[in-house]
Each structure stands twice: as structure tokens, then as C-alpha cells.
Computed example of a mutant assay.
Amino acid sequence: MDVELTVYLAGEIHTDWRDRIADGVDEHDLPVDLTGPVTDHAASDDCGSTILGAEDRPFWKDHKGAKLNAIRTRTLIGEADLVVVRFGGEYRQWNAAFDAGYAAALGTPYIVVHGAEHAHALKEVDAQALAVCETPEQVVAILRYVTRGELSRPSPSLSVVR
């Protein structure tokens, strides 16, 4: 019997990790509905001032945008059965850490994805996660196991996080 899951993909927006998970979900026809934040960086940054009016000071522009984005984030994390949080190598992703903390506070299980270089910095976030991965393919393998009970090993050729 398949387990159906709604999975929120949180975190880093500058690489193709979400697409790789979506491709794996499609390839294996998994009963998984993927949701996530707005990944158009400019739209995410500008939503508050575009919808609610321009701001002269960057703090207030960011404040408006963060609140509008929080409506989406809180709603979708609250509806998720599982959250996957990706920390990339290039930028500090405070929002990703916050999303992990929010999922933990709600009691929603989460998986963390990051390279070995972040293991020390993310030790507290990792300690609360039910799995810590380095690749999107490992996430797909977890989703196969959780939804179908199918055990598979991700291809080593796909193990580099892009």
C-alpha cells in the first residue's frame, strides 16, 4: 500500500536540486505532491513593495516582502507531511534554518540536504532532522522507501550536489 505525502521543498533557490527531486518523483511515479516557496528571487524580494507599495528604506521593503512570503511558507509547511531543507554552499540561508526550526516546532518531520562542509555549522539543525543527505537523489530514495517500501541505492554518479 502506497503512502501519499505532501513534501515542502525549503531552502536554497540557486541550483536545480528541486528539479532533480521532482524528476525522481516523476520517474518512479511516487505518490508525492511537491510544494515550496516562490523560487523567482526577484519576485520573492519585490512582492511586498509591488503589491503593497514602494518603500524608501530597504528594511521596510524587505519587511513587507518577508511577511508576504511567510504567508505562503507557513501555510505550506503547515500542510506538509514532510519538509526537505536544502542548504547550498554559496549563500547563508537563514530562511532555510528558520524553515527547519518551524517544521520542528510543528512536529513535522524534516530531511536536511547539504554538503559535508556544512556539517559542523548545521549540527543542531541536523540533530533534529530524521535524515541528513548530501544529494537530491538520496531524498528521492528516501521518498521511494517511505511511500512504497522500495529500497534502492542512489547512483554514485549522481552524488555531487550541483
Rank of each mutant, 00 (worst) to 15 (best):
T75L: 09
F87T: 03
E117M: 12
A54V: 12
I77V: 15
D33Y: 11
V38D: 11
A119E: 15
A104I: 00
F98N: 05
D45F: 09
V38E: 14
A116K: 14
F59H: 11
D45A: 13
G24E: 05
L76Y: 10
I21M: 09
L52N: 04
A105P: 03
N95H: 05
A96I: 10
A116F: 03
D33L: 13
L82E: 08
A54S: 14
L30Q: 06
K61R: 15
D19Y: 04
A97P: 00
L106S: 03
G115W: 08
D45C: 00
A116V: 14
A119Q: 14
L34M: 11
S44H: 00
R18D: 05
A43S: 08
Y110P: 02
L76M: 14
D33G: 05
R18H: 09
V112S: 15
W17G: 02
G53H: 09
A104N: 14
L76W: 10
W94V: 13
E79N: 12
A96C: 11
P37M: 04
S44C: 03
F98T: 07
Y102D: 07
W17L: 01
D19W: 06
L30R: 07
L106V: 07
W60I: 00
A100M: 09
A66F: 05
D81M: 10
G53V: 10
A116Y: 07
A70H: 09
W17N: 03
D40K: 01
I77H: 05
D56R: 11
Q93R: 08
V112R: 04
V38S: 01
E90G: 13
A103N: 05
H63Q: 13
D19I: 10
D26G: 04
A70N: 07
E27A: 15
G88W: 10
K64E: 09
A104H: 15
A100W: 02
Y102W: 12
L76Q: 14
D56Y: 03
A22I: 07
R72L: 07
G88E: 06
F87W: 03
D62N: 14
P109S: 13
P109A: 12
Y102R: 08
V32E: 06
T75K: 13
L76V: 01
D40W: 00
S49V: 12
G107V: 09
D99M: 10
D40V: 01
H118V: 00
G53L: 07
G88V: 10
